Structures are given as C-alpha cells and as structure tokens.
Deep mutational scan, measured.
Amino acid sequence: SEEEEEEWRRAKERGEEIIILGILWKPNDEEAERRIKEALRRV
C-alpha cells in the first residue's frame, strides 16, 4: 500500500531495519528489497 511504501522509504533513508509485509528488511538487503517490491505491487 501507499503508506507501507512510504514507511519503507523512510526506513531506507534512516538506514534502519524494518519489518514490512512480513518481510524483515535490513539496509542493503537486495533480496528482501526485491521481495518487498513484488509484494507491494501485488497489494
């Protein structure tokens, strides 16, 4: 969703871990980033 995407962007800017759509994303975690982008597209 729009607000999840916004939340994720803010976490990326701050360089902090975030759990979004049930996926743990850490800074520079390209695999998780790809999965999150896929999940955001499906929503």
Rank of each mutant, 00 (worst) to 15 (best):
S1H: 15
S1L: 15
S1R: 12
S1C: 15
S1G: 15
S1Y: 15
S1D: 11
S1K: 12
E2Y: 15
E2K: 12
E2R: 14
E2T: 15
E2D: 12
E2H: 15
E2A: 12
E3N: 14
E3Q: 14
E3L: 14
E3F: 14
E3H: 14
E3D: 15
E4P: 14
E4M: 15
E4L: 15
E4R: 10
E5M: 07
E5T: 06
E5V: 04
E5Y: 09
E5F: 08
E6P: 10
E6A: 07
E6L: 06
E6N: 06
E6K: 03
E6M: 05
E6W: 08
E6F: 07
E7N: 14
E7M: 12
E7S: 11
E7C: 15
E7K: 15
E7A: 15
E7P: 01
W8A: 06
W8M: 10
W8Q: 06
W8T: 05
W8V: 09
W8R: 07
W8K: 05
W8D: 04
W8Y: 10
R9S: 08
R9W: 11
R9C: 12
R9N: 14
R9Q: 14
R9E: 15
R9M: 13
R10D: 09
R10S: 10
R10F: 04
R10Y: 06
A11F: 06
A11L: 11
A11N: 03
A11M: 08
A11W: 07
A11V: 07
A11E: 03
K12E: 05
K12A: 08
E13H: 06
E13S: 10
E13R: 05
E13D: 10
E13A: 11
E13L: 11
E13G: 04
E13V: 09
E13W: 02
E13T: 08
R14W: 06
R14E: 08
R14S: 09
R14P: 03
G15V: 05
G15D: 04
G15C: 11
G15W: 08
G15I: 05
G15E: 06
G15F: 04
G15P: 02
E16A: 08
E16L: 14
E16P: 02
E16R: 07
E16M: 09
E16Q: 11
E16F: 10
E16W: 07
E17Q: 10
E17P: 14
I18T: 10
I18D: 02
I18N: 01
I18K: 07
I18M: 02
I18A: 06
I18R: 03
I19V: 14
I19W: 15
I19T: 11
I19A: 02
I19S: 05
I20L: 04
I20G: 01
I20F: 14
I20W: 01
I20Q: 02
L21W: 00
L21Y: 01
L21A: 09
L21K: 08
L21H: 11
L21S: 04
L21R: 10
G22L: 07
G22F: 10
G22I: 12
G22C: 04
I23S: 01
I23F: 01
I23T: 01
I23D: 04
L24T: 08
L24P: 04
L24K: 13
L24V: 07
L24Q: 08
L24D: 03
L24M: 08
W25Y: 04
W25C: 06
W25P: 01
W25F: 05
W25T: 01
W25R: 00
W25H: 01
K26T: 13
K26V: 13
K26W: 06
K26Q: 10
K26F: 08
K26S: 11
K26M: 11
K26H: 08
K26E: 05
K26N: 09
P27K: 00
P27N: 00
P27F: 03
P27A: 00
P27W: 01
P27E: 03
P27M: 00
P27Y: 00
P27T: 01
P27L: 00
P27R: 00
N28A: 08
N28W: 10
N28K: 04
N28Q: 08
N28L: 06
N28T: 04
N28R: 05
D29L: 01
D29R: 01
D29S: 03
D29Y: 03
D29E: 02
D29W: 05
E30W: 09
E30K: 09
E30M: 14
E30D: 13
E30N: 08
E30P: 12
E30L: 13
E30C: 10
E31L: 07
E31S: 09
E31Q: 08
E31P: 02
E31T: 09
E31W: 03
A32S: 12
A32H: 02
A32Q: 04
A32D: 03
E33T: 09
E33M: 06
E33G: 06
E33L: 05
E33W: 04
E33R: 04
E33S: 08
E33Y: 03
E33F: 02
R34H: 08
R34N: 11
R34P: 01
R34L: 11
R34Q: 13
R34V: 09
R35E: 11
R35H: 10
R35F: 04
R35D: 07
R35S: 10
I36N: 00
I36D: 03
I36A: 02
K37P: 00
K37D: 12
K37E: 15
K37T: 13
K37Y: 05
K37V: 12
K37R: 12
K37I: 13
E38N: 03
E38M: 00
E38A: 06
E38G: 07
A39V: 07
A39K: 08
A39D: 03
A39Q: 08
A39C: 07
A39L: 10
A39W: 03
A39T: 04
L40E: 03
L40Y: 00
L40A: 05
L40R: 03
R41F: 05
R41I: 11
R41L: 12
R42C: 11
R42E: 12
R42V: 13
R42Q: 14
R42K: 14
R42L: 13
R42A: 14
V43Q: 13
V43K: 14
V43F: 12
V43D: 08
